[in-house]
Design a protein around this nucleic acid. Structure first.
Lengths: 212, 212
DNA sequence: TAGTCTTATTTGTGATCACAAATAAGGCCG
DNA sequence: CGGCCTTATTTGTGATCACAAATAAGACTA
């Protein structure tokens, strides 16, 4: 998902970014430069640069002279984010569904099975990883780097809240059904159906998250 | 368009950002920390932070150990950017057209007249400023901060090439017609018409820029 | 004369230090 | 005993310095 890194701040940035998307930090939590640097065993400088980059992307909020913190979304902000995800991911899914070759389609099918198995074995980490690969593969196939980049940004903003979805076990089952809908629509090359299925996936996930 | 700044790197960031959108820097041009710092009469540190923030937003590209530079878009990248602008700005225009109150609509009408006058007097800077206000007002009315933020990002990426549109004088006339189309559709509350007019505006601007 | 290797300079990156603002703790007054 | 002001610590911001990689310049060879 993220590119290789030669310089030091890039690797720190990549690691922090992954931690954020996985939901390692709580909304409202304040990331202090010296703490992060100590935890990672590096100097303050590259950490500072990495945090500034993440703040510029919207993954963190930056109060002047008060450092950076994980944003805590209000209800309307959360709805806004969800709506935008439905728009952009729906668009990417519709475009990607027409450009996927058979190899990629087979890969997605296997990823779907991996998600089933991870769900059955109750391994959330594996499920999330497969889920991410599933969507990334579809969205990349759309052939629009900018669109993918924007979606990636939205995932980053949604990460701190979205990945606590496994607190409600019945949600995962519904989400898995949504993925199967996506697969079915993909196999019959129904691009608008794929869009609708993806939109529904995001929507129902939002419904579950709203009850917190 | 940009918020007030208390800290030093924020003001530098804001100034550089404005310069980029206005097209002060050429595509491919390399921004060297020490040069920018000397030009602005400030230290290296806040300049470095500002450039990193801009790179994180996609306004600049960051080669490891090679500094930052203004991105030079390839033909497909340019098309991609244009397509995404049509999608997002079209969406924002459609939503905003239904939420604009009469005061805002009157403001937009006056901005349209200011653009006419600036065009007649051959004052590109005024035209660009009014044009930006025109679009910002419409897009903000959509009520989606995230959507506006994403559009802002795309403008930033398109800035270095888009604002050299005045090299071809006949282009401005066509673009002005497009704005009048937007106004007419707004006044009759035809939201899909507004979307189409905005999409057309972006499209024809792209057609002119492609001939360079 | 053109190409390439070498050297020298520039330039980004990271460390350490110094300062100012913000936060947290403690004491005072109601 | 609770709220507010003051003080002390923490924490982000910016400066200066040191190093390593990349670029640019120059000389040598084919």
């Amino acid at each position: 998902m993220t590119e290789a890194s030669s310089t030091q701040q890039d690797s720190i940035y990549a690691k922090l970014r992954q931690w954020i998307t996985v939901g390692r930090f709580l909304p409202g939590e304040r990331l202090k430069i010296r703490n992060v640097a100590a935890d990672m065993g590096v100097g303050h400088m590259p950490v500072r640069a990495a945090l500034q980059r993440l703040a510029a992307e919207g993954a963190l909020v930056n109060s002047p002279n008060a450092g950076v913190a994980v944003p805590q979304l209000s209800a309307p902000e959360f709805d806004d984010l969800l709506q935008m995800r439905m728009l952009l991911e729906g668009e990417a899914a519709e475009r990607g569904s027409m450009l996927l070759d058979t190899t990629q389609l087979a890969t997605m099918k296997s990823l779907c099975e991996r998600m089933d198995q991870a769900l059955a074995d109750n391994r959330p980490a594996d499920y999330l990883a497969a889920n991410e690969d599933f969507h990334v593969l579809l969205y990349r196939a759309a052939g629009s780097p900018i669109l993918f980049n924007l979606i990636d940004t939205l995932w980053l903003r949604a990460g701190p809240v979205s990945n606590h979805l496994f607190d409600t076990p019945e949600a995962t089952q519904v989400l898995n059904d949504a993925h199967r809908d996506v697969m079915r629509a993909l196999e019959r090359r129904d691009s608008t159906g794929v869009r609708r299925a993806v939109e529904k996936d995001i929507f129902v996930a939002g419904q579950f998250l709203r009850r917190r």
